[in-house]
């Protein structure tokens, strides 16, 4: 018996999303517990990004509902921090690290209100937590890929959110930067924050996330990551008769032990 049942923060009930005529998500039933790290897994076009954006209310649901706590997530946007994919940013934009992190405070400001001392404090704390204090005055192109990713995580932190929706945060990062990011996300989860990330690398997901959601338009599996990433499930999600791989175990093995 658990001491206290995990408090489910995100609930999907029979969620279906259509992109024009095509089915993007079909009948998803899913609970994402509070204070966990959840990897969204699946082949390209499986609906990982759609699922993240559906939480933000960007897609009209053809059926079903999504709840954050007890409320509709659209009414709780301050609790949600969304991290877009890296390539959507113009890194030559005339903006410094600190100014990007300050953007996290913008939603909580009134129309013509300036950043208060409290806001600056939160920005400083976010910069500090992500080890960016020394880089705060740099223009954002003068950072490494891992540092750039951390700037946007710091912005999410400064927002004061507790649910972090990350769209492919590991894309384009080298091994060291990936490890750094994993470490950081594990730390966040220990502080009771909830992380939901679209991830491509199965081995990385297995090592660094406690829970997994395997999608292929419909939900294939959800639960503890090791159970989700069973050979049978991977086979169902990734092969579907399209993959060239004969043996699904081979797929996991090559990603699990890169030599």
């Amino acid at each position: 018996m658990p001491i206290h049942a995990p408090h489910h923060i995100l609930r999907f009930r029979n969620v279906t999303v259509l992109h024009g005529q095509t089915l993007a998500l079909e009948g998803i039933n899913l609970d994402i517990p509070c204070g966990s790290s959840t990897a969204l897994l699946g082949p390209n076009g499986a609906g990982k990004s759609t699922l993240l954006r559906a939480i933000l209310g960007w897609h009209r649901l053809a059926s079903g509902e999504i709840r954050l706590g007890d409320a509709h997530p659209h009414h709780q946007l301050p609790r949600l921090a969304y991290l877009p994919q890296r390539q959507s940013i113009d890194w030559d934009f005339p903006i410094t690290v600190r100014a990007v992190v300050e953007q996290g405070r913008y939603p909580s400001l009134r129309f013509f209100q300036r950043l208060s001392a409290h806001d600056h404090q939160r920005v400083d704390r976010a910069l500090d937590e992500l080890g960016l204090t020394d880089l705060a005055d740099r223009q954002i192109s003068q950072l490494s890929g891992g540092q750039q990713q951390r700037v946007f995580l710091a912005r999410a932190l400064a927002q004061g959110a507790d649910v972090f929706l990350l769209d492919e945060p590991f894309a384009g990062l080298d091994l060291l930067a990936c490890e750094e990011l994993c470490h950081l996300l594990r730390n966040w989860v220990m502080h009771g924050r909830t992380v939901v990330a679209a991830v491509h690398d199965l081995a990385l997901a297995r090592e660094s996330f406690s829970r997994g959601v395997l999608l292929d338009t419909a939900l294939i599996a959800t639960g503890p990551i090791a159970e989700v990433l069973s050979p049978e499930n991977i086979d169902r999600a990734f092969r579907r008769g399209r993959s060239a791989r004969e043996n699904p175990l081979h797929l996991t093995r090559t990603t699990e032990f890169p030599s």
Partner: peptide, 11 residues
């Protein structure tokens, strides 16, 4: 101008 997706995510 800088990050329209983030702006949208903030409402």
């Amino acid at each position: 101008t800088f990050d329209p997706l983030f702006y949208r995510a903030c409402g």
